[in-house]
């Protein structure tokens, strides 16, 4: 039971912050894809910069182990491209669609309906995907620092520097 309550509490805080950052809007998501309004990128990259330092610190003190998703070549590339195509027309991602309805944008319900349909279709196609796209090449659960043989802290420092430069550019371009 505590597990479910914890999930609910975390979700409430997440939804609250997504709404305060105004990233739940169709226009913000499509605005980023049209390179006109980078609000969602600023939001997401800020979360990543902070979270990255915390998670690697927790790993360094032995509190957690990281959990990489497998780098399945066909799955991540074909699936990722399909997601991008659908995302640009739907204007929401799975997490934001639920919050969008809550702030009155009830048309996001159509997006949720479409996603439930997509999940059901995928469940039917899964055995076929296992034999085809997912069978091409799997590099396994791998982190970038291990893959290139560099300390994670060097990668994190470079990631911070690159992202801050990107933020400065966004502000200069007023996007």
């Amino acid at each position: 039971m505590s597990e479910l309550l914890l999930g609910l509490l975390t979700g409430v805080l997440f939804g609250f912050l997504l709404q305060k950052g105004r990233v739940l809007r169709f226009d913000k998501q499509v605005g980023a894809m049209r390179l006109m309004d980078m609000t969602i990128i600023k939001f997401m990259m800020s979360a990543i910069l902070v979270g990255m330092v915390g998670l690697y610190t927790l790993r360094a003190i032995g509190y957690i182990e990281l959990s990489h998703k497998p780098m399945n070549l066909g799955g991540v590339i074909i699936g990722g491209l399909l997601f991008g195509v659908g995302w640009s027309i739907m204007g929401y991602c799975p997490g934001t669609s639920v919050g969008a309805i809550a702030e009155g944008r009830w048309h996001a319900g159509f997006a949720i309906l479409g996603m439930l349909l997509g999940a059901a279709i995928y469940a039917e196609c899964y055995p076929f995907m296992l034999k085809t796209v997912l069978a091409w090449k799997d590099f396994g659960k791998v982190g970038l620092p291990e893959a290139i043989g560099v300390s994670p802290w060097i990668v994190i420092a470079l990631f911070w520097a690159g992202t801050i430069a990107l933020f400065r550019w966004f502000e200069r371009m007023k996007i």
Binding site: F83, V85, G86, G114, L117, G118, A119, I121, C125
Partner: peptide, 9 residues
């Protein structure tokens, strides 16, 4: 769009 995106995800 939602169906294509979720299939991809």
């Amino acid at each position: 769009g939602g169906a294509v995106a979720m299939f991809g995800a």
